[in-house]
Design a protein around this nucleic acid. Sequence first.
DNA 1: CCCTTTGTTGACTGATCGGTTCCTAATTTG
DNA 2: CAAATTAGGAACCGATCAGTCAACAAAGGG
Lengths: 191, 191
Amino acid sequence: MGRPRTFDIDAAVDRAMELFWRQGFEGTSTEDLVEGLGIARGSLYKAFGSKEQLYAMALRRYCERHATGLIEMLDRAEQVRPAIRAALLELAEADLADPELGCLLVNAATERSAHQDTVRQVSRTMSQIESALAGALERAQARGDIAADKKPRELAQFLTTFLQGLRVMGKARADRAFLNNAVEVALGALD
Amino acid sequence: MGRPRTFDIDAAVDRAMELFWRQGFEGTSTEDLVEGLGIARGSLYKAFGSKEQLYAMALRRYCERHATGLIEMLDRAEQVRPAIRAALLELAEADLADPELGCLLVNAATERSAHQDTVRQVSRTMSQIESALAGALERAQARGDIAADKKPRELAQFLTTFLQGLRVMGKARADRAFLNNAVEVALGALD
DNA sequence: CCCTTTGTTGACTGATCGGTTCCTAATTTG
DNA sequence: CAAATTAGGAACCGATCAGTCAACAAAGGG
């Protein structure tokens, strides 16, 4: 009962995610959101409560969209090493194509390191990525695709860390050769 | 001639650097600067021109203080591999001690990727770090301390990238074991 | 067909934003 | 000491900030 909502909540969160992604939390004003989402101020606050809560939803949406994609890709991968290489190179290409965007997780971790909710969401997602990598590396090790004396969990923690560095260097306008070299050396750590 | 300045410009830039470091550019208001620097608004603008210009000075100061320290340490190092390990572990410890601080260069790269001046300063400093690493690795290779078939420049690009990732994971509240593992695996890439 | 419920809207709020202005204070030069 | 020059500081500027509110609109239930 009551008047039905005239806009799509999911689509609105998606657009908010893009705005926060490109401009950051502090850099995105409520006016930007009103304009970008095409929703009046009051409706926006009725639907989402506050800028903080909308940001939290947008960040969760980003994790579902992007981290989950990476994780599923790793879970399904037949050949783990080529899958990891492809994933890293794809992220590097994304940064080269649009360096101002980068990774919302990295942006959130740096801009909002004083906000517990944000940090916890970021930290949880990093752990999921680490676990997916560790699982994939275990499978690869069982097949003899990577060195038997390496510990999958440690390799996964290394790769998770390297991945974030890649996104930072992408934002710092490192060129394709730089990023590709870095990826190849990183993959060498699996040998 | 004229009335002499009653505050120390260098000390003021140092304090501004700390504020921007901890709170970001957008997160630091001119009022924060007035209070934190102990300088009245008018004097602040007379001395520094604008918030943007003060930020640029603070960022340059950070690079001189921190990146240069790292670079000189690498240039001087007798034993390159232990020096790199020590440097990485030291940065990891800094993040563990104060995770909300992190690295101003990483913060600048992510928060201000749309501001050419900031990006250029960050990019230049990354290049300096890369070159210092490459130089050190070349020396290490000449002494047989690292594998002869590796290319120092590529290793340096990898380490530079990994270093940024370490700072991000520090901000994302990775624990000591995680960061230490990541560092050890990264160093393994030199073999 | 009204009543309740919920969504929409834009005007409005006080606070704060980055930056300027103007008057006074302190110093050097002549 | 007088003129010139620069710093200090508080009041002030229009703009914008995040968030609220009251009037209105659209639906379902009786």
